[in-house]
């Protein structure tokens, strides 16, 4: 379980990058980190990985402040990818595995399994600079995973990947999460986050404005009823809560909360009810609402 408590970070020119960010990611949870550019996602992740020092707040791992030795067991994929361009794929993965403390035998096994899983078997003897960007990203991921990390922090791991690669990566991350590893990743692809993540944290201007499971966030938004009535009697919705809009000869009524059965009765009296149902907000809508 990783807990972030009250992180605050002010950069040189007095720019407040983080203003009390707190959240927790339990074992086996896939946590999606979303927010506008410059909201503080990368800064938070860099503090967890020790690349930056927080001005205030702490990072707690399994109940105690995170130490260097524990962080060594984490896997990290920074936003700006970093690999030795002239080093071969296999050697590069091995090198990072060894630095994380694996012996040569364990590294070999883990590397072979990973490159097979990520579709890099053919490229194992190529230098990194000769690979496409997508393949370089796979190598970057392999470097983050080689030591079977106890926590994964990935900054924009899906950006620039083709749909097939996205599926492979999603599958790999799911496997790790099922194995009990907390997985934290940031992304601007909200549909992807919604589909993959157990929990989501939305940061805006250095603060966590909403966090929880996707269902919790939806419930917090409230149930939203949508009714479509064809050729309604004028003024049928007078006195009902919600917003009414016209779409040709149809009226569309959107109601948050309230008595849905009363609304239904009025709609049936008013005309042909074409649609009546509770709609759940998408993450995109929740996000817009949260950062507005």
């Amino acid at each position: 379980m990783l807990e972030i408590r009250g992180l605050r970070k002010v950069f040189g020119a007095g720019k407040v990058a983080l203003d009390g960010v707190s959240f927790a990611v339990p074992a086996g949870q896939m946590f999606g980190f979303v927010g506008a550019n410059g909201a503080g996602k990368t800064t938070t992740m860099r503090i967890v990985m020790g690349v930056l020092q927080a001005d205030e707040g702490e990072v707690i791992w399994n109940g105690r402040p995170l130490t260097f030795a524990e962080r060594r067991t984490f896997g990290y994929m920074p936003e700006e990818r970093g690999l030795y361009q002239k080093m071969r794929v296999g050697e590069q993965i091995d090198y990072f595995g060894r630095l994380h403390g694996l012996d040569a035998g364990a590294v070999g096994k883990a590397r072979d399994a990973l490159i097979g899983r990520l579709g890099l078997t053919e490229r194992v003897n190529d230098t990194v600079e000769s690979l496409s960007l997508g393949n370089q990203q796979r190598v970057q991921l392999a470097v983050a995973l080689i030591h079977d990390p106890e926590l994964l922090i990935l900054d924009e791991p899906f950006s620039g990947l083709d749909p097939i690669a996205v599926d492979v990566l999603a599958e790999v991350l799911h496997e790790r999460a099922r194995g009990g590893v907390p997985v934290i990743f940031s992304s601007h692809q909200l549909e992807l986050v919604e589909r993959l993540c157990d929990a989501v944290g939305i940061v805006s201007a250095g603060s966590m404005v909403a966090s929880g499971t996707v269902d919790e966030l939806r419930d917090a938004e409230g149930r939203r009823l949508r009714v479509v009535v064809r050729e309604p009697k004028p003024g049928w919705a007078d006195g009902l809560p919600g917003e009414l809009s016209k779409d040709g000869d149809r009226d569309v009524l959107t109601v948050v909360g309230g008595d849905d059965q009363a609304v239904l009765r009025r709609a049936v009296e008013a005309g042909h009810v074409e649609f009546f149902g509770v709609e759940r907000p998408t993450l995109v809508e929740i996000f817009r609402e949260a950062v507005a």
Partner: peptide, 17 residues
């Protein structure tokens, strides 16, 4: 500079001092 500029150092310094 190669390691710093390419940010490899950010990954390296997770596992070594």
């Amino acid at each position: 500079v190669e390691e710093k500029g390419s940010r490899i150092v950010e990954i390296l310094l997770i596992s070594i001092r």
